[in-house]
């Protein structure tokens, strides 16, 4: 079977999973449904010949699920039924999004066809990457040699995000300080 058929199948499952994740009342079910989407992305990466990304996506998805479950599972979580105005507003949003989707179809038609990318810069990397960097894994040679500056920026962003999370969690609130 061609790749397109498989991808359509996986993407269909992912769309169903995402809608389910957003509409379910129970928090644990919602997080598990988001797991369907993330692991679907991992499978799609495998079909698209990107084993590097499949591994990384799989592991990070598991980690994200662990973080979400550990943070939210014991809170007494209950969703109130939305009021009528909210239902109307969601309906209007859906209509607007459908309109956006219909108008965006010509844009997607103007893109290159699936399976025939342009590859203007990356052909150079494919031809000379192994000889210039000595790495067999060309993705790794790009992120750590040709575009290592990007990776430095990425490490900085990760550092800042984690630092923010640590600071937010460790700071004592004002009421607690007054109690002590």
């Amino acid at each position: 079977m061609p790749v397109e058929t498989w991808l359509t199948f996986v993407l269909g499952i992912m769309i169903i999973g995402s809608v389910v994740a957003l509409e379910l009342k129970d928090i644990l079910s919602a997080i598990i449904a988001i797991g369907i989407v993330g692991l679907g992305v991992s499978v799609a990466f495998l079909f698209l010949q990107a084993p590097d990304l499949a591994i990384v996506q799989f592991l990070f998805e598991i980690f994200a699920i662990i973080i979400l479950i550990k943070a939210f599972i014991k809170k007494d979580y209950h969703v109130e039924t939305p009021s009528r105005i909210n239902l109307y507003l969601s309906g209007i949003t859906v209509i607007i999004l459908v309109v956006i989707f219909i108008f965006s179809i010509p844009i997607f038609k103007s893109l290159p066809v699936f399976g025939e990318p342009l590859m203007t810069t990356s052909q150079y990397y494919l031809d000379n990457g192994a000889a210039e960097t000595g790495a067999a894994n060309l993705v790794s040679s790009i992120i750590l040699d040709y575009r290592a500056y990007d990776t430095l920026g990425e490490v900085t962003v990760l550092f800042t995000a984690i630092l923010g999370a640590l600071t937010v969690l460790r700071i004592k609130s004002r009421t607690k300080m007054e109690k002590r």
Binding site: K70, T133, S140, L144, A148, I162, L166, L169
Partner: peptide, 26 residues
């Protein structure tokens, strides 16, 4: 491959420590 394994090790340490610390602090 020169510096690539070195940078891989550094990134591995970085990712492992930061992700574990988030869960730890949580």
């Amino acid at each position: 491959a020169g510096t690539i394994p070195l940078l891989n090790i550094i990134i591995g340490v970085k990712v492992a420590m930061s992700l574990f610390l988030v869960v730890w602090v949580m």
